[in-house]
């Protein structure tokens, strides 16, 4: 593992979180490359190897559709997130592929001003190195709890 890759992943994750928390959702799909796999699941499902997801995408188009549905179609009370992202742990680095696990905590701020811990969990990421740059090809969001309060609109 080189410090360089580690630092680039840290930076990429900070930018990812910031685009969501700043309500720049239109930029969210731009953080994905290649297969564009994005899944939100729970620790219990992940442990049992159950493959269904709360959100499932395996193409850039599906990521774009999630954003336009949130902007144009779905109805939910105004809300925002604050991501607190921990240090990534590099699980493997071989053949230009880096697998990492990064803990997160997401607070949700709802319309009436209440802030609550909405989700904690970990990102299981697959980055592919292209021209020395790590590109996020796959992100499995594993939430620690099996419960989702009210609804999950904005991606984690």
């Amino acid at each position: 593992m080189t410090d360089n890759v580690y630092q680039m992943i840290v930076r990429a994750q900070a930018e990812y979180a910031r685009s969501i928390d700043d309500d720049r959702l239109e930029e969210w799909p731009d953080h994905f490359y290649g297969r564009c796999v994005y899944k939100i699941t729970t620790a219990a499902n992940h442990r049992e190897g159950l493959e269904a997801a709360i959100i499932f995408a395996n193409s850039r188009g599906m990521l774009l559709d999630r954003v336009s549905a949130l902007r144009e179609a779905n109805i939910y009370e105004r809300q925002s997130y604050r991501h607190i992202i921990g240090q990534p742990c590099i699980l493997s680095e071989e053949n230009g592929e880096v697998r990492s696990e990064t803990p997160f905590l997401v607070a949700r701020i709802v319309q009436d001003g209440d802030t609550d811990v909405f989700a904690t969990g970990r990102y299981l990421d697959l980055y592919k190195l292209e021209d020395g740059q790590p590109k996020l090809n796959e992100r499995i969001v594993v939430c620690d709890s099996s419960r989702i309060d009210t609804l999950l609109a904005i991606p984690l």
Partner: peptide, 17 residues
């Protein structure tokens, strides 16, 4: 089925409301 899971559940396109 995995793709159409996006329609339902806590983040479902036609069920989150």
């Amino acid at each position: 089925r995995l793709k159409q899971g996006n329609l339902v559940g806590p983040a479902g396109y036609i069920s989150m409301e």
